[in-house]
Design a protein around this nucleic acid. Structure first.
Lengths: 199, 199
DNA sequence: GTCTATAAAATGATAGAC
DNA sequence: GTCTATCATTTTATAGAC
């Protein structure tokens, strides 16, 4: 068996291991020892590809906030009405959250870590998040044959605010029914900011 | 000068010092040494009133989540319309956030710490948060002479979701104008779930 | 290149002088 | 009761054997 790995593969393996460790026990639990143990590597391998624990955590922050969070919102319905489409997109995000709460908790912690450690980077990645949401809204408009009656950035921000809020609230109380209720109300709210396009 | 303090006063002083340390550098920075230094006490004094660092952090979590977050929402306007009243309440919360972002960042971190360390306690305190918001909504209804047309728990949850979302989003991008925009839209949204009471 | 063994620093907790 | 000095543990980081 060849134990030799490329440095890039080793870094990636350690980043993924770190995410799993953080999901289980929080950022504080992500010691170099815990991470290499999770990745089934000897301790020495760590400093072979990372100069410090902070460098690993920065790479983790960079990796996970790089669009991973919004992926689910792209799961749009075919041929459904506007409100149903928005509701379905939010619901698919909620399903992802429910399927792996520890992971989402870890993402939240890492987001805070990034905010403290490198606010400028956190801000840039937050910006990408907005752009992605705007793209989703444009896609929704096209599929449903509507036009948004309010500025896209404002609508995108409302959805991001609500998404973050639902995440935080559900992580605290795990009340799925209540979360779905909010979600439906939000879908109706957002759908009210659209008008039909007569083609 | 009498250096003697009652154990209760000492505990409280250490808790307040811990909150300041956490606001500056996160939960990870709240080492026993850092906290006693902030409180201007010798290291030995720490274990004189706390058996462990975890006990201090638990007390901090208990203290801060104990209704401190919602205090601002009680700042209601006199004699204003419904939408303006809700908007003013949300705006006063936002002002508090802007006035001391590090503190709110610390509260968020501590909330996550509590969620990991003692989920049951975190859940109970989250519940209190809901009840407080419902009380605010009842108060608003009374002052504005309206009746809510949707279940109070659902309205309260929507407002908590939005409040958490605005907090997280503003902490990330510090875009105050955008936050105020969301806030106004939310006030209109919530105000739509009410009808006049003819007395 | 890989990994074991160890150094160096930080931290939680305590013992014992005053 | 108070606080200094110290211990034991944990952790990051590195040196050196293979």
């Amino acid at each position: 068996m060849n134990r030799r790995m490329s440095p890039e593969a080793r870094r990636e393996a350690l980043v993924q291991a770190a995410i799993r460790v953080i999901a289980r026990g929080g950022v504080a639990a992500a010691t170099t020892r815990a991470v290499v143990a999770e990745a089934k590597m000897p301790l020495g391998a760590f400093h072979y590809v990372f100069t410090s624990r902070d460098e690993l955590l920065s790479e983790v922050v960079h990796t996970i906030t790089d669009g991973e969070r919004m992926a689910a919102e792209l799961a749009l319905l075919e041929g459904a009405g506007l409100e149903a489409t928005v509701a379905a997109a939010l619901a698919s995000y909620l399903d992802l959250l429910i399927a792996d709460p520890d992971r989402e908790l870890a993402l939240t912690e890492l987001s805070l870590y990034g905010l403290r450690h490198d606010p400028a980077l956190a801000r840039r990645q937050h910006q990408l998040y907005f752009l992605e949401m705007e793209a989703v809204l444009r896609q929704v408009a096209e599929r449903c044959g509507i036009r948004w009656t309010e500025p896209l950035p404002e609508l995108a921000r409302r959805l991001i605010v609500v998404t973050e809020g639902i995440t935080g609230t559900w992580l605290a109380d795990r009340d799925t029914d209540a979360a779905r209720g909010v979600l439906r109300a939000v879908a109706a709210w957002v759908a009210a900011s659209a008008e039909r396009v007569d083609a």
